[in-house]
Amino acid sequence: MFEARLTQGRLLKQVLEAIKDLVTDANFDCAATGFSLQAMDSSHVSLVSLMLRSDGFDHFRCDRSLSMGMNLNNVAKMLKCAGNDDIITMKAEDSGDTVTFMFESQNQERISDFELKLMDIDSEQLGIPDTEYAATVRMPSGEFQRICKDLSSIGDTVIISVTKDGVKFSTNGDIGSANITCRQNTAVDKQEEQTVIDLNEPVQLTFALRYLNSFAKATPLSTSVILSMSKELPVVVEYRIAEIGHIKYYLAPKIEDEEMEENDG
């Protein structure tokens, strides 16, 4: 039997909003350690990895590990019916084929049960090696979201370059080009407003903005975002969710193609 109760129900709503654009169907894994998910988008360009630790829930019980396949859009539909201040409880039997979401309003006056049919999904797991990244940038998540949104109105790819002074986002499109630089800024008192760069080696990588915009849907979950990059490796875009876990997104960079001859004809 699995049962997890979260006073901050809003958080679960936001988590769903942050992954449903990327992945349609996925398996949620319930274990004694927590509630997690790893899934790739259908083109295998990006991956989302969610972890909500059991100690972050108000109540968490998981007798044996379960893998629950769900259509994320359908989960989001149900969670939309929960109020922002509702307490959400998830429940599933070990051998059942449904999961129940229970919403309780703050004053306990309204209690709703939503039962979702589970589905069988072939899940594949990508083994991600633990690497030391050449550059790590922590910046306000709102700032990152705005940059991605602004740049995607000009072009469809972004070049992210990190040096010791700052991080530069550049794009090129039919109408022109754009560059946005964020300087390292540790002077402000509030940690969430800082831009901190931890650099072993300058890095420059190219990414499709479309995916970064999807990642930025996680902005409400955290005030800052952490970008970890190494030469010729996927970027990690991490949102830490206070006291309970994180969402990490991995995105494969764009690479130069050697089999295409120069386009000069």
Binding site: N27, M40, S43, H44, V45, S46, L47, S67, D122, S123, E124, Q125, L126, G127, I128, P129, T206, A208, E232, L233, P234, Y250, A252, P253, K254, I255, E256, D257
Partner: peptide, 17 residues
């Protein structure tokens, strides 16, 4: 244009659970 990479080419093929 440069081509979009895939995660498999960096992390290896995904394994069925």
């Amino acid at each position: 244009k440069s081509t979009q990479g895939r995660l498999e080419s960096f992390f290896g093929q995904p394994k069925p659970k």
